[in-house]
Design a protein around this nucleic acid. Sequence first.
DNA 1: TCATCGTAGATCCTATAGGATATTTCCGGC
DNA 2: GCCGGAAATATCCTATAGGATCTACGATGA
Lengths: 231, 231
Amino acid sequence: MGPLPEGIPMPRPEPISFRRSTLGGDVYEALKSLVLEHRLSPGDRINIDALAREFAVSPTPIREALARLESDGLVRKRPLAGYTVSPLLTRAEFDAMFEMRLLLECASTRWAAERADAARREAISAEAATTVASEEDDPDGWHAAFTALDARFHDLVAEASGNDLLRDGIDRLHAHLHLHRRYFPYAQAGATLEEHRRIAAAIQAADPDGAESAMREHLTRARERHLPAFD
Amino acid sequence: MGPLPEGIPMPRPEPISFRRSTLGGDVYEALKSLVLEHRLSPGDRINIDALAREFAVSPTPIREALARLESDGLVRKRPLAGYTVSPLLTRAEFDAMFEMRLLLECASTRWAAERADAARREAISAEAATTVASEEDDPDGWHAAFTALDARFHDLVAEASGNDLLRDGIDRLHAHLHLHRRYFPYAQAGATLEEHRRIAAAIQAADPDGAESAMREHLTRARERHLPAFD
DNA sequence: TCATCGTAGATCCTATAGGATATTTCCGGC
DNA sequence: GCCGGAAATATCCTATAGGATCTACGATGA
């Protein structure tokens, strides 16, 4: 079993004495990355044997990784016919997802404002102050950087809520959102960042009502920004 | 590959032309059942080779099923050292779970009251009217029956919310709750059923505030009923 | 008696092989 | 040209085998 092929962003570090991961774990991360970074598109067939040849591994770790990704909701399995990448959200699914985001993320923001320690409040504010380079410089790189920034911000808030189950639930939602976002232009980064800063300020000020209201407004506007994609 | 061994409640029906499941799928269901029906206890080591011998199958479908169950949160994997059943909730985890239940299930109940069609409202009321036989007659069977009834009621409400993501989230929470419940006596079935009936009546009456309030009270009391277990 | 080290056996992980099933291609009939 | 059936090929699924790693136990030394 040689090194993983070029183009797969998953270097295999040399084993060291406290290394605890396995090939199977690495394959899961690589496949997840293929999906979330859109090198496998929604609806694409995932050919186990071809992937095993491409990764130069046996099918066994591929199958295990796919089983995990199925439970994560990122791929779908048809028994005896294989796996596909989960499709893009329908309009109804999109609405359900934003409804769920509103439920989970408004709560997480309120709880963060109530409960976060000073270090976490500071980290949220610092993240909200982060900017990304201009979109004209590098459109693809910009998109990835902006997406990563947005994800980090929301995850920091979810972590600060103090409820791990809630954080996990938000993380799962974001994986679905990631799948979706590449295919629908995400306009108005400036507005998004301003909204993040408003949320962070309310959390810093330990203002639960203000924080929840700012997150609600952010998500409502984010939803509106996405809606043209369904026209 | 012969039939599955006695004692495993998973008959393998003869293949029929429209059968779409696989051995791997059957193994997943059987393992999940072992965990949720507590024939594997929290913290138990899961020995892949022994299970493969016991089920008279190869390790491959066992490993895939375990990968899925790990993503479901029901088992935990230590790389190179195998899987264990997820442990019982700590008090802090228990609190986080009930906090999450309150968030998700109060919303699902409110939405069900707002949105459910007449058939669903009727189904919820019918389910709430269902009773289980007396606990003295068959303590083990009673417990399983009561647990199943409770799960069905809550899932009907979640389904009636009209948001599949929310229903999935509640389902995942309930799997964790199932894991926990066998080890802590679930007292006062009468009170629980009365609370279910109050929730159902508010949903039937299309009263979102009343429904949400009834579910909040039910969950708050359920939580209190569990708390002595941590003493 | 306790701690450490070495060894044997058990278990985990992955590769390979083979059978079952699905999909694609080809051919014949209308 | 279109449709249906058969054959060929690809793919999926699972069993088996073998190497890597972990765990448990016994022996030895302080």
